[in-house]
Amino acid sequence: MRPFSYIVAGSVQEAVAALHEHGRDARVLAGGTDLLVEWRHPGARVPRVVVDISRIESLRDISLEGRDVLLGPLTTHAELIRSGVIRSEAAFLASAASTIGSPQIRNRGTLGGNIMNGAACADTVPPLIALGARVTLSSVDGERDCHLSGFYNKPYTTVANPNELLTQVRFPALPRGTKSAFTKLGRRNALSISRLSVAAVVAVDETGVITDARIVPGAAQTVWKRAMEAEKILIGNPPSVALFAEAGRVVSGVLIRETGRRWSTEYKEPVIAALVRRTLEKCFAVND
């Protein structure tokens, strides 16, 4: 790893001041599970200044503000899984976190790092987009809020400026009775990045008709998007396996329209459809 100077930020103020001072030469370090892997490669761009934010206790909270769930970016995946708030207000976010890496990675890797790294296979992002999450970016110039859905330009690239720190993730808790699920397909049963994944949210009214549906495929597109076309065909209909299968076909049709047919489409086309159907079915299975 090439040498750098190391700054421990004791507070958000100190962190943003350091980022302001060093601009593009600086990089924020949280759990380091993405950065250390990146930095040890010979050709890596190791920053001149590393700003370690891992000691800023105020960025670690999980709390409820009215019906809004607030998450500090330093929340680790392990903490997400253990959190009662997350389990009751956004269960599928906890399931997504539980599929990440290994216990060691989940003990260290943070939500903020997962979001800011922005890999197409980042597992917490599809549920967060389905939740309509917003993120707060702070800098010496103040704060701004962004919708996570508009946050990425392409994999590994966000709209955040180098002098900005992610300081909060916020989303409305799922309304009572709304169901959510996350499905991840990996090559093995642990330590496996998403080959494909799907996050879904479904709500049904007293008459048994779907009133809300949100579907976000993961590791499938250059940027995450809700599959609106598929969501539309669900709304207003009673849930059924056939309907879910149809939604799956629509999702895979849209993906192919966007990415074009490639040599790997043969596999992705049926599989993403199946994963969408299964995730919707899972919403209605007994909650785990």
């Binding site: 380091g32 250390l36 392990a78 216990p103 060691q104 990675i105 003990n107």
Partner: peptide
């Protein structure tokens, strides 16, 4: 961070010491 041979406890929790600065 894949093999776990470097695992130690940091504040009581298992972490990959190769990924901790």
């Amino acid at each position: 961070g894949e093999c776990g041979a470097c695992t130690v406890l940091l504040d009581g929790r298992a972490v990959n010491s190769c990924l901790v600065l």
